[in-house]
Design a protein around this nucleic acid. Structure first.
Length: 277
DNA sequence: CAAGTTACCTGACGGC
DNA sequence: TGCCGTCAGGTAACTT
């Protein structure tokens, strides 16, 4: 489900509801997630602790506590976070539950279990950039995300532009939907070998990507099957898709039919005219 | 070493 | 109706 815009929407929604809440209990159904869930450690570090911040890095949600511990959550493909009243019936794929002091529960639901829930100790939390996010690329809205950085990263490499854009070690938070949409916005061919892009094209890509992400966040993210934010409402950016999932329909700019092909194992949608190169 | 493929898991959908 | 293959918003460990 969630790429950067969806995680950011969830973050903003949860932040208001979670700040100042204290964890009173944790429940885990023991189904394996992508990474082992260390329930004991989580209980030792979080019980009785108050939430002081809700942040985001790449597609990770970071819930910070007043003892400096950090809960690091990833939604994988189908993960959802929701806040509901205690006693409300458990849903089929609710895996972890954090009980809060106002009789509400933060729940992690994930059909495919590609998500994860990790815990950083107070000692680790000051060094997350070096011990946890040392392989994570730059944030698209950070000033370090600029044409010189991209030129340097692409230097001498011939891989397709879209794969590069989705590489989390280079750029944080971009998945299949927004890679497709940003390339259309920047009018660049998904197949372009990255070493062939000149500085002005990288600048176009940066603007296209930031414009696309900003618009998506303001729409509350994209709801493909059942993405829901903290309030249980849906995003509506999907009605603004220019190319994603639109093969065979007219390009919004030139009316040429949008094409679909596979690139790096992922569905790739583009206008053969507007994105000729 | 760069880049492509596979595995992890559930569920929806289309074809037969 | 139901069985089978394919596909889906992600990531990392593989192989080539």
């Amino acid at each position: 489900m969630p790429e950067l815009p969806e995680v950011e929407v969830i973050r903003r929604g949860l932040k208001k509801l979670l700040i100042h809440r204290t964890v009173t209990g944790i429940c885990y159904d023991n189904k394996p997630l992508r990474l082992p869930v260390r329930l004991k450690t989580m209980e030792q570090l979080l019980l009785g602790q108050k939430i002081v911040a809700v942040d985001r890095r790449a597609k990770y949600l970071l819930i910070r506590f007043d003892n400096d511990a950090v809960l690091i959550l990833h939604m994988g493909m189908t993960g959802k976070m929701s806040l509901c009243p205690t006693e409300s019936p458990k849903n089929v794929h609710d895996h972890i539950c954090w009980y809060l002091d106002d009789k509400s529960e933060l729940r992690f639901n994930d059909i495919r279990r590609f998500g994860s829930a990790q815990i950083a100790s107070p000692e680790q939390s000051g060094m997350l950039d070096t011990i946890f996010f040392n392989q994570t690329g730059v944030e698209p809205f950070d000033k370090a995300f600029n044409a010189d950085y991209l030129l340097r990263q692409a230097n001498g490499k011939r891989r397709p532009l879209k794969n590069f854009l989705m590489d989390g070690k280079i750029i944080a938070g971009i998945g299949n939907i927004y890679a497709n949409e940003a390339l259309f916005k920047a009018q660049l061919n998904p197949d372009r070998p990255i070493s062939s892009l000149i500085k002005t094209e990288w600048q176009r890509l940066i603007v296209g990507l930031r414009t696309t992400l900003t618009h998506a966040i303001s729409c509350g993210g994209s709801t493909i099957s059942d993405f829901a934010n903290a309030n249980g409402t849906s995003g509506y950016f999907q009605i603004n898709f220019s190319v994603y999932g639109r093969q065979g329909t007219p390009c919004p700019l030139c009316q040429t039919f949008i094409e679909k092909k596979k690139l790096g194992g992922r569905a790739t949608y583009f206008c053969p005219v507007c994105q000729r190169r």
